[in-house]
């Protein structure tokens, strides 16, 4: 592949890494919150986090443009502060993060729930601070599930298309991630170009899925 053809590959990887940087702390934190206690907003948080999994990407894209576009309630405020998100790589990062988040939470939360409650209680009675309990007991017990979640979330982030197209647009060299480059090449009848990215994403997707299937604990905890 030439440099020009490789650009979408590098861009996708960058967007994926940045999206993971956003998603990882948020997703692991949310999974812990949801797994550890029955708080009042549990159902609401669940619905908000999981909704992007079942909503059409165009709906997510619409909300993003509507809210964070230059004339949107949040976007307009950012615009006055000198920050513009729409049609930038950051827009792609945001769209990717939203769809990647539920993937991570869905994998991490059950793994955390499977950590025996007694262990957590014992650690607490032995005087560990809450964060230390999380780090040394919960995370250590659930790390396979969390790692699987991170991997799948990364691949999902790289594969985001619909909301990205609406919010980040198709700007060659700037926002044309692999999925967007596939769409552009396909429309232009340039199937050979599309095929290269299709191959990269197919291999990546299969590898991640196969790895996740082998790596995830079949059930319960891994100590």
């Amino acid at each position: 592949m030439t440099d020009d053809a490789l650009a979408p590959v590098w861009l996708s990887l960058r967007v994926g890494v940045l999206a993971l940087a956003v998603t990882a702390p948020l997703g692991i934190g949310l999974a812990w919150l949801q797994a550890s206690r029955a708080h009042r907003f549990r159902g609401l948080v669940d619905a908000l986090v999981l909704a992007p999994m079942v909503l059409p990407p165009s709906v997510i894209g619409f909300f993003l443009v509507w809210g964070l576009g230059r004339r949107g309630p949040v976007g307009g405020w950012l615009e006055r502060a000198g920050v513009r998100l729409i049609f930038t790589p950051w827009a792609a990062v945001i769209a990717s993060s939203i769809v990647a988040l539920p993937v991570l939470v869905k994998a991490a939360q059950p793994a955390m729930e499977a950590v025996p409650q007694e262990l957590v209680l014992v650690a607490r009675t032995l005087g560990l601070a809450p964060f230390e309990v999380f780090r040394r007991v919960v995370l250590r017990g659930a790390w396979r599930g969390v790692a699987t979640g991170l991997l799948l979330a990364f691949v999902r982030a790289i594969g985001e298309f619909g909301a990205t197209l609406m919010f980040a647009g198709n700007i060659p060299g700037r926002t044309d991630t692999m999925p967007i480059a596939i769409w552009g090449a396909y429309q232009a009848g340039n199937d050979d170009r599309a095929l290269g990215y299709v191959a990269v994403l197919t291999v990546l997707g299969f590898l991640a899925a196969a790895f996740a299937a082998r790596f995830a604990p079949p059930r319960g905890v891994d100590r």
């Binding site: 004339r71 049609f87 647009g169 060659p172 060299g173 700037r174 552009g184």
Partner: peptide, 23 residues
């Protein structure tokens, strides 16, 4: 201008980008 040109799938999409004031 590379990196600043948003490609629309047809002329209507270009028009819509302008009407919404996003470009």
């Amino acid at each position: 201008l590379a990196g600043r040109l948003v490609f629309g799938g047809d002329v209507a999409a270009v028009l819509a980008y302008v009407r919404r004031g996003e470009v």
